[in-house]
Amino acid sequence: MTTERWPPVYDAKELATTINKLVDSNQLKSHFFDYHSHDLGPCQGDIIWLATNQIPVLDEIGQPSIYEDDFCSGYWMIVGNTCDIARNINNVEWTQIIPLLDLGTDNEINNNELAALMRYRHSRRFYVPAWSNEVSGHHFVADFLKPVTIHKTALFEVAEIKAKLSYYGWMLLHSCLVRFLARDDGRFD
């Protein structure tokens, strides 16, 4: 086992700059979602409803299991690449989604926690503000730690697209996804 610190493959400085610029941009705060493109097919970053909040996982002994928790909302975010989603299903049959956890309303989250969520300086979850009156007042995080493989047919025929990210929202998701997978090695911190 190596004892040296592994540097990030990605340009960490630029990635950090990008995330911070986007988060602090008024455009991002006011334009997180795109409300004009709902007739498009499923894309990376879309919020979908699947009517199941059960998450398939391998448990501590590698056994196929179902993870459940009351804050698993039944809403999911597509993180699979749009290119793969668009390709013929005979060539690319599967894609990935991650669950949206409903953290509750302002009454259930203190100001420090809410500020931290909105700073996007945490790497394992992605903060998602309420996208419609249906979930008004609630704060969500997409959990990068629990990706689920889904058949693409379910995306097109079963899933209901609830919201689409704007360009800025997608850019932030993209940056945070890269950071989650390729961030600096913190084993020796």
């Binding site: 950090a16 610029k21 602090d24 300086r121």
Partner: peptide, 11 residues
């Protein structure tokens, strides 16, 4: 596309 602010990636 956006303004420069700070450089801290993860807290």
């Amino acid at each position: 596309f956006v303004q420069d602010v700070s450089m801290l990636p993860i807290s």
